[in-house]
Measured scan of single mutants.
Amino acid sequence: NMTTNERRVIVPADPTLWTQEHVRQWLEWAIKEYSLMEIDTSFFQNMDGKELCKMNKEDFLRATTLYNTEVLLSHLSYLRES
């Protein structure tokens, strides 16, 4: 059983600085953390943090459901504000 610390993704605090690998790690973490289903992860495959942060609700909806979109966008905006 993993502790919270072991599951925590170590990525730069500012999502606009993320590499493609960071985006992948964040997505994998969010899927596990929030038990998200039905995400087309290939949609995010060649995307870095700058591109991710430019995405709006409609962009996310092409890859996943409305619920997942709201979870991911709210977590992303939380990270950008902190």
Rank of each mutant, 00 (worst) to 15 (best):
W18G: 03
T65A: 03
T4P: 11
T4D: 13
L17P: 00
T16I: 11
T3L: 10
T4K: 12
T16D: 10
D59V: 06
L52R: 00
T41D: 14
M55S: 03
D40V: 01
L52F: 10
T16Y: 07
L76F: 02
T69V: 09
Y34M: 07
E70Q: 10
T3R: 07
L61I: 05
E6K: 13
E58A: 15
E6P: 08
R8N: 15
F44K: 00
E51R: 09
A30R: 06
L61R: 09
E58T: 10
E51T: 13
Q25V: 14
P15R: 00
E58N: 14
V71L: 09
E6S: 11
S74C: 09
T65G: 10
F43K: 08
L66M: 12
A13D: 15
T19S: 09
Y34F: 15
T41V: 09
K50E: 14
Q25N: 14
R8D: 13
W29N: 15
F44V: 06
D48P: 05
E70H: 12
E21Q: 14
R8H: 11
R7Y: 08
F60E: 00
I10C: 05
D40M: 02
A30I: 10
V9L: 11
F44N: 01
K57L: 06
M47K: 07
R7C: 10
V71A: 12
E51A: 12
E38F: 04
I31W: 03
T65C: 11
Q45P: 04
Y67P: 12
N68Y: 01
N56M: 12
K32C: 04
K57M: 12
Q20M: 13
N68E: 11
F43A: 10
L52V: 06
E21F: 14
L72F: 06
I39A: 05
L36G: 03
D14K: 02
T3W: 11
Y67K: 11
Q45F: 09
V71P: 04
L61Q: 12
D14I: 03
D14L: 03
E38Q: 06
W18H: 03
W18S: 00
N68L: 01
N56L: 08
S74E: 15
T3M: 13
R24A: 15
G49H: 02
E21I: 03
L36Q: 02
L36W: 01
M47W: 03
D48S: 12
D14T: 04
Q25C: 13
F44A: 09
E58C: 09
L17M: 04
C53Y: 04
Q25Y: 08
S42R: 08
R24G: 13
K50C: 05
L72Q: 00
M47C: 13
D40F: 05
N68V: 04
Q20T: 11
M37E: 08
W29C: 11
P15M: 05
L17N: 05
Y67H: 14
N56S: 11
M2T: 06
K32S: 12
E28R: 12
R8W: 03
D14M: 03
E70P: 01
E38N: 04
T19P: 00
K50R: 09
V23M: 01
K57R: 10
F43M: 12
R7L: 15
R62D: 04
R24Q: 13
F60G: 00
T64I: 01
E28M: 07
L73N: 02
F60S: 01
K32D: 12
K54L: 12
F43C: 04
Y34C: 04
A63Y: 14
L61K: 04
N1R: 09
F60Y: 15
D40I: 02
L61G: 06
Q25G: 11
W29K: 12
L73K: 06
M37I: 07
H22N: 12
N46S: 09
N68D: 15
M2I: 10
Q45G: 11
F44W: 08
E33Q: 10
D59A: 11
T4E: 08
W26E: 00
T16K: 10
E51N: 08
I39Q: 01
L27D: 03
K50Q: 13
T16F: 12
T64W: 03
E38C: 08
A30V: 09
E38D: 03
L17W: 06
E21A: 13
P12L: 04
S42C: 06
E51Q: 13
E58D: 11
T16S: 09
Y67Q: 14
S42E: 04
S42L: 08
N1Y: 12
N46F: 13
I31C: 05
K50F: 10
Q45D: 05
T19H: 15
Q20C: 07
Q20L: 05
W29P: 00
L61P: 00
E28K: 14
W18K: 00
L76R: 02
L27F: 14
Q20F: 02
R8Q: 09
V71I: 15
K54Y: 04
M47Q: 03
S77T: 13
M47L: 12
Y67G: 13
T64D: 02
L72K: 00
A63E: 06
P12V: 03
N68W: 00
L72E: 00
R62M: 13
T19I: 03
D59S: 08
T3V: 06
Y67W: 07
A63C: 10
N1I: 15
V71T: 08
M37Q: 05
R8Y: 04
R62F: 04
N1T: 14
T41R: 10
L52E: 00
N56P: 07
D48H: 04
D40P: 07
N5L: 14
L66A: 11
I31R: 14
V23P: 11
L61M: 08
D59R: 04
N46E: 10
T4W: 11
P12Q: 07
T65P: 09
S42M: 09
K57G: 03
L76H: 01
E6F: 03
L27I: 08
T69Y: 05
W26Y: 15
Q45R: 14
P12E: 15
F44D: 00
K54S: 12
W26I: 01
I31V: 12
N5Y: 08
F43D: 07
R7Q: 09
Q20A: 08
D14S: 06
K50Y: 15
A13K: 14
E51H: 14
E51L: 08
M55E: 01
I31L: 05
E58Y: 13
S42V: 10
V23K: 01
L76Y: 01
D40Y: 02
T19N: 05
